[in-house]
């Protein structure tokens, strides 16, 4: 068994038979003289011959490590599979469609070395369609920044470098790869930096994104916002909501009493609304208790949830650090 490499590059691949050889070649060029590295190519159930090509590429260079997912799971899961198998002290993720430039990797790693846990690229001069890609993405980034409080300019850029300790601390599922910086800050207290990276227009294949994902992004955002704010005390989240319900209920109760005793009228609607809202109050508190129970039992036996801690030795150059 060879020594673990210092740097792991993780690339989810889905039907990239044309881009793949160029990708491997550019990564090889970019990491020339950067020490030991491995390139984890995670095939996400490709159907266009990518798999056979990956096998040939891996036979020619032992640093190319393919992983084959049993079906098409989506980019987030593919990325997580790569993270699970990465051995390097530094892990870099990027897209497989050649829109990121591997030549930026050493700069990301250098920045990481300054004492960050996560360095994410932002795309200068983005080469994408204005109407369907750039404008929605501008709005999305604004909303994400506002809701998560993590000031990242470009959440859609996959080119990122992580310390291994950070990668071990988050677990991506669903479509969460869009919010990695927010998740890293929320769940592990990561120190995040952002540097400009190059961006190329798509040369081969089809873009695998569409515009019809607003609802997904919105609901994911709500999740991240809630988890970020309340992951240690969900009862507080539900408690706050129940306070809102209780005060509304109280307002209607007072209004009912006024109607009955001041105006002397018999009414049914306001008291009913009072009772419904009071029911909601109780329900929300009970849900909060349920969340606490889920958290209490769920945390058992998971060590990787502890936050990252900055240490002196953490400042050492990640590429030279012992694996």
């Amino acid at each position: 068994m060879a020594l673990a490499p210092a740097l792991s590059v993780v690339v989810p691949i889905f039907n990239e038979v044309e881009s793949l050889p160029i990708l491997v070649e550019t990564v090889r060029e970019a990491l020339e003289g950067q020490g030991e590295w491995e390139l984890l190519l995670v095939d996400d159930g490709s159907t266009d011959g990518t798999r056979s090509l990956l096998m040939r590429l891996a036979e020619n260079d032992r640093r190319v490590r393919p992983l084959y997912l049993a079906r098409n799971y989506g980019q987030t899961t593919a990325m997580q599979a790569g993270f699970d198998h990465a051995q390097g002290a530094v892990v870099v993720s990027m897209d497989g469609d050649l829109q990121n430039d591997p030549a930026d990797i050493p700069r990301l790693v250098e920045k990481l070395d300054e004492g960050y846990d996560l360095v994410t690229g932002y795309r200068l001069n983005r080469k994408d369609r204005l109407l369907t890609r750039k404008i929605p993405s501008w709005f999305a980034n604004r909303i994400i920044r506002f809701l998560t409080g993590v000031p990242i300019r470009d959440n859609g850029c996959s080119l990122k470098a992580y310390r291994r300790e950070l990668v071990r601390r988050f677990h991506l599922y669903s479509d969460m790869h869009r919010f990695i910086p927010a998740i890293a800050v929320a769940t592990a207290g990561a120190r995040v930096a952002e540097i400009p990276v190059r961006h190329h227009a798509r040369q081969h294949g089809e873009s695998k994104y569409g515009l019809s994902r607003t609802w997904k992004v919105l609901s994911d955002l709500l999740v991240i916002k809630s988890i970020r704010s309340f992951r240690e005390r969900p009862l507080l989240l539900f408690g706050l909501l129940s306070v809102v319900a209780l005060s509304l209920s109280g307002t209607f109760a007072v209004r009912s009493l006024i109607t009955v005793f001041v105006y002397g009228r018999t009414i049914f609607i306001f008291p009913s609304v009072t009772i419904i809202l009071f029911g909601l109050t109780v329900y929300l508190i009970m849900l909060g208790l349920l969340a606490e129970a889920a958290l209490f039992h769920g945390r058992r036996g998971i060590r990787t949830l502890s936050p990252l801690v900055a240490t002196r030795s953490g400042d050492a150059h990640p590429l030279r650090r012992e694996a």
Partner: peptide
């Protein structure tokens, strides 16, 4: 953390 959401 304890789920492996994929099969290789």
């Amino acid at each position: 953390p304890r789920q492996k959401g994929y099969r290789l």
